[in-house]
């Protein structure tokens, strides 16, 4: 189990670096590709967390479907690189306030994580992996305790489908 920490750091570094580059450069097509790398790293972390099913779902749905949709739109619109000129700036007052609020928020997050005692315990020690990795168990809970939310998502998907068709149609 000595390998767990280095593996975590590798995946975490890849995820952070790729995500930073997604927003750090101007070509949309590269952003999409880098986001795939980031999601693949997250899938690796899910496997480390004994959730192989979520990891595979992450790849199939996120990388295999949602991001293909993004890539499609980027190609369809032949999306240009973002303009690099100076953007309209906010007034200095609100900008300073924004910086202060962001710093406070970051500090708050760090403090919350540090303060919590359970955050310092190893994440995989308490419960055996069997408890979370079984697809049978996930299915059971999903179709009993979460049956209502599950049905609601199907409604959500229908609404999204109709909405997307209506919005993207040329002549309504």
């Amino acid at each position: 189990m000595g390998l767990e920490l280095p593996v975590f750091y590798v995946f975490a570094a890849v995820a952070v670096a790729a995500s930073a580059l997604v927003i750090g450069q101007r070509s949309p097509i590269y952003s999409v590709m880098l986001l795939i790398v980031s999601f693949a790293a997250l899938a690796g972390l899910y496997i480390l967390l004994d959730a192989p099913f979520v990891a595979v779902i992450q790849i199939i749905i996120y990388a295999g479907a949602i991001l293909v949709l993004f890539l499609f739109v980027v190609m369809l619109l032949n999306a240009p690189k973002e303009a690099s000129g100076p953007r309209p700036r906010l007034a200095p007052g609100p900008r300073r306030a924004g910086v202060v609020l962001a710093a406070v928020f970051a500090g708050e997050l760090v403090w919350a994580v540090w303060r919590t005692a359970m955050a310092h315990e190893p994440v995989t020690a308490g419960v055996p992996a069997r408890a979370v990795e079984s697809v049978h168990r996930i299915g059971q809970v999903l179709y009993t305790d979460y049956a209502f939310p599950f049905e609601v998502t199907s409604l959500l998907i229908i609404v999204a489908m109709v909405g997307a068709v209506v919005l993207a149609k040329r002549h309504v």
Binding site: L49, D50, A51, F53, V54, I57, Q58, I61, Y62, A65, I66, L69, F70, V73, M118, E121, V123, T124, G126, V127, P128, A131, V132, R137, I138, V141, L142, D145, Y146, P149, T153, L156, I157, V159, A160, M161, G163, A164, V165, V166, L167, A168
Partner: peptide, 29 residues
Amino acid sequence: GRYWGAVDGQIIVFFVVTVAAAEAAVGLA
């Protein structure tokens, strides 16, 4: 979810993924 040994965390992830898919479809449209 892993820490508490419950699968509920993973199930909420599925819902988040569904919402993300719907959001991407409508957003891109």
